[in-house]
């Protein structure tokens, strides 16, 4: 399936070439705007409840900076590789585009596996979100981000299937572009989680 293209404007990338598809990109930005508000609410929650340890662990002893730094490096690298995927897409290099998307997906999966194994270790020690206001707000904020990344991986998998079946056209190009916006956005959110929650936790 391919849509008619309007290339009346010189140098238009494929994902913007169809008018209707280009509107969907703007629409996706508006979704990200609402997601900013969700994470802002969760950050406000964390800022307020951070001090409520309720006899449980405090942030300085609860957080492990090693795994958190590792997760940061995974997400930063995956943000770079999805950027390379878009760069290849705009040159019509579909093999490189698919390969970089696959690398992005694997890095994202490594991030989720690291995060889940951290959470499992916390719960094994009895540090669940029932324990204190601090842990409730921590798991709500970081868990929501982790759920977003998990959903992003499913989105990338579906995209790989569509790209293999339909090839690169105005629709699949737009889907890959909006996926890249989503992925970079999750990286931005993680930067603030790493800074405020993990690094900030060591300052208290």
């Amino acid at each position: 399936m391919s849509l008619p293209l309007e290339r009346e404007l010189e140098g238009m990338p494929l994902e913007f070439a169809n008018h209707e598809e280009s509107i969907k990109i703007t629409g996706f930005w508006m979704f990200l705007v609402t997601d900013v508000l969700i994470f802002a609410s969760l950050f406000a929650l964390y800022a307020v409840y951070q001090g409520g340890m309720g006899g449980g662990p405090d942030p300085a002893e609860f957080f492990h900076l090693g795994p958190a730094l590792f997760e940061t490096l995974l997400l930063l690298t995956s943000s770079f590789t999805v950027g390379l995927s878009i760069w290849a897409m705009r040159r019509g290099q579909t093999r490189a585009m698919t390969a970089w998307l696959l690398v992005t997906l694997l890095l994202g999966a490594a991030f989720v596996v690291t995060e889940v194994s951290e959470f499992v270790a916390d719960v094994a020690q009895g540090y669940t979100w029932h324990q204190s206001a601090f842990l409730s707000s921590f798991f709500a904020l970081v868990g929501t981000h982790g759920a977003h990344v998990t959903f992003g991986i499913l989105m990338a998998l579906a995209l790989l299937v569509q790209l293999s079946q339909r090839g690169l056209n105005a629709i699949t190009a737009r889907k890959l572009f909006t996926f890249s916006l989503y992925w970079h956005f999750l990286d931005v959110v993680w930067i603030f989680i790493f800074t405020v929650v993990y690094l900030g936790g060591k300052l208290t």
Binding site: L9, M12, F16, H19, S22, T26, S79, F80, V82, G83, S180, L181, H184, F185, D187, V188, I191
Partner: peptide, 12 residues
């Protein structure tokens, strides 16, 4: 991230 990777200013 917004400027370099997300093509913030790009639009038709």
């Amino acid at each position: 991230q917004l400027g370099v990777f997300m093509h913030l200013r790009e639009s038709r």
